[in-house]
């Protein structure tokens, strides 16, 4: 019974994946990709990884879909888009990809015994940190350096997006996200939903210490609400040169680095927390990170500056 349900799920995923590649229109491909994100979120739930399911639901279905659909909107429709090259090449590449897939499948079918796991190592440190959500413990204590570097990647990504602005527009506002035709319904949604969404975002961040949830999930939800407001034309994207905005981008990573450096003096070294104070420090870092993630994700979707800065 249970395996039959999983088979159905896999079948649906493969349908969405194949259609993502084969759809002629690029917008159809993006819709298929959004469907795939929803399905994957259910798969993560099935694999009992609730934290990941939350991330996939917020990022996979929401944020990535928005970026891709917005790109579609700015490209002219052309017939040739979905056209794949000749059949002979398709077969050759298909065989090559099938071989790669078969190799990966072989790895899955011959797993090492016993299965390797770092869970005991994490369990040994759960007490010291004082949080009950193992994933948050890994993200902010056990492998905190990874998380810090990932924040740096996010900031670098944003700088990369901003750097694509023509010199003339540097520091100006990104192109507006508003819908092509104004809609009263959309305005209504953008007035009603954000207060609720912000509450849920804060809840996810706060809940992340002891239950599934956390900075990414909460931050993404906050970013989504901001984007909704921008799409309904209730607020333009801010000028990228605004100092307050740049401070918000930097506050999370900066606090994280400061806490890391403080570890040299107050604990065992970089990114180690003084015993007994781990939980409050981690929660403070999480709050700052969530703010930064929300702003960074929102600005990455908004894109590079497309207008001269106001005088």
């Amino acid at each position: 019974m249970s395996l039959a349900v999983d088979l159905v799920m896999v079948l649906l995923i493969l349908t969405a994946a194949v259609w993502t590649i084969l759809a002629r229109d690029r917008r159809d491909a993006v819709i298929a990709f959004i469907v795939l994100g929803l399905l994957l979120s259910l798969v993560w739930m099935r694999l009992l990884a609730v934290d990941v399911a939350l991330t996939e639901a917020a990022v996979g279905g929401g944020a990535t879909g928005l970026v891709l659909l917005r790109a579609c909107a700015r490209l002219l429709p052309v017939e040739a888009d979905g056209a794949l090259p000749g059949l002979r090449l398709q077969v050759a590449v298909g065989v090559l990809c099938a071989v790669v897939g078969a190799c990966l499948a072989a790895v899955i079918l011959s797993p090492p015994e016993p299965a390797p796991s770092l869970a005991p190592a994490v369990a040994a440190h759960m007490e010291d940190v004082g949080l009950k959500n193992p994933v948050t413990v890994v993200l902010l204590a056990y492998r905190a350096l990874d998380t810090l570097l990932e924040k740096v990647v996010l900031v670098l990504g944003l700088i990369g997006v901003w750097a694509l602005a023509p010199d003339l527009f540097w520091g100006g506002r990104p192109a507006s996200l508003r819908a092509a035709v104004p809609s009263g319904t959309l305005t209504f949604l953008a007035r009603v939903l954000p207060p609720i969404g912000v509450l849920i975002g804060i809840y996810l961040v706060w809940n992340g210490a002891d239950h599934p949830g956390g900075t990414f999930q909460g931050g993404t939800v906050l970013a989504a609400m901001w984007l909704l407001v921008m799409m309904a034309d209730l607020g333009d994207p801010p000028e990228t040169r605004a100092l307050r905005l740049r401070r918000l981008v930097a506050v999370g990573p900066a606090l994280f680095i400061a806490v890391g450096l403080a570890g040299f003096g107050m604990a065992d070294g970089f990114l180690s927390y003084p015993p007994g104070y781990a939980k409050p420090i981690i929660v403070a870092v999480e709050v700052a990170l969530a703010l930064s993630i929300a702003v960074i994700l929102g600005l990455m979707v908004a894109g590079p500056a497309a207008k001269e800065p106001d005088q």
């Binding site: 917008r27 819709i31 959004i34 929803l38 979120s41 739930m45 609730v50 399911a53 939350l54 639901a57 917020a58 279905g61 929401g62 879909g65 928005l66 659909l69 917005r70 579609c72 909107a73 700015r74 429709p77 996200l177 819908a179 092509a180 035709v181 809609s183 959309l186 949604l189 939903l193 609720i196 969404g197 849920i200 996810l204 809940n207 239950h211 599934p212 949830g213 999930q217 939800v221 989504a224 909704l228 799409m231």
Partner: peptide
């Protein structure tokens, strides 16, 4: 905890549809 997944899905239920209307052929 799984309820939070449903909560996130419900919150972003209209998001893709809003994004779809961003750009339309003909406008």
């Amino acid at each position: 905890a799984v309820l939070d997944i449903a909560l996130t899905l419900a919150l972003l239920a209209a998001f893709a549809a809003v994004a779809l209307t961003l750009g339309e052929p003909g406008s």
